[in-house]
């Protein structure tokens, strides 16, 4: 089960302000030119401050970031070789350039900061509040409802899959094709897995029917309604405006 925040829903900054600040942060990080290291360091320290204030668990935050970083690194891997500039190193037909290295480092920096900001948001804000924030910021209700129910039922789906896997393992102490782990074994496993996925799909399909009935039974007739979130507090508005101003300043410093 992922480690998500769950609070009484009253403490801390308004989720809408958090969401907007995180988005603003990511936009600024992305828009900064390559080599704006001072500004990046400023942004990084602002994340540090947020993490300290919110008493974020460092280890799990870093684990999450580390999990996503290889994907970014893989995507950026070609940059040092494909960007024009002064050659630093020749590897066969490839030329490593100085500008290429700079772009590579800047991209990794941007990714690192963006992922950390997004992880901070998700770790410190209960998912239901995030969904509500998205909705009140104008994301279509149906889209939010789909995301929210996907989140809600992902746990049940995972539990169902785990139960089925346990049942499968408890019945397959001895493999029908002996101890070898050759192609036949692989084929046999793949067939089992395929069946399991099909079964999960069927069960989810049937469940979705029952959920729909439960919604209709309580008056759902095609239009989703939702309660409006509480009004903005002055404190949250100050934080939002102040934060955005800081981000903008950082961006201006960088592009100058």
């Amino acid at each position: 089960m992922p480690e998500m925040a769950e609070s009484d829903g009253t403490s801390g900054l308004d989720p809408r302000a958090r969401l907007l600040l995180t988005l603003g942060f990511i936009v600024v990080v992305t828009a900064l030119p390559d080599g704006a290291w001072v500004e990046m360091a400023l942004l990084a320290s602002s994340l540090l401050v947020v993490a300290v204030i919110t008493r974020t668990d460092w280890a799990s935050l870093l684990r999450r970031v580390a999990l996503l970083l290889p994907f970014a690194a893989l995507a950026a891997l070609s940059l040092p070789f494909t960007t024009a500039g002064e050659t630093l190193l020749r590897v066969g037909p490839l030329r490593l350039t100085d500008r290429g290295m700079l772009r590579f480092a800047a991209l990794i920096g941007r990714t690192l900061l963006s992922i950390t900001a997004a992880s901070l948001l998700v770790r410190q804000t209960p998912m239901p509040q995030l969904f509500q924030a998205l909705q009140s910021l104008g994301v279509p209700r149906l889209l939010v409802a789909i995301a929210a129910s996907a989140y809600r039922y992902s746990f049940i789906l995972a539990e169902e899959a785990a139960r089925m896997d346990r049942a499968r393992r408890s019945r397959s102490a001895d493999l029908p094709c002996g101890r070898g782990r050759g192609l036949r074994w692989l084929w046999w496993r793949a067939r089992g897995l395929g069946g399991m996925i099909g079964m999960l799909f069927l069960r989810s399909y049937e469940r979705s029917e029952r959920i729909y009935l439960a919604m209709v039974a309580r008056g759902y007739a095609g239009t989703l309604y939702a309660l409006e979130p509480p009004a903005w507090q002055r404190r949250d508005l100050y934080a939002l405006v102040g934060g955005m101003a800081g981000l903008l300043l950082c961006l201006l410093m960088g592009v100058r």
Binding site: G9, A148, Y151, R152, R218, G219, Y220, Y225, A226
Partner: peptide, 16 residues
Amino acid sequence: FSPTVFDDVAFGPLHM
């Protein structure tokens, strides 16, 4: 089916 217990209990009255 809702993200929180409260949202779920509010669903019926809301749709009334």
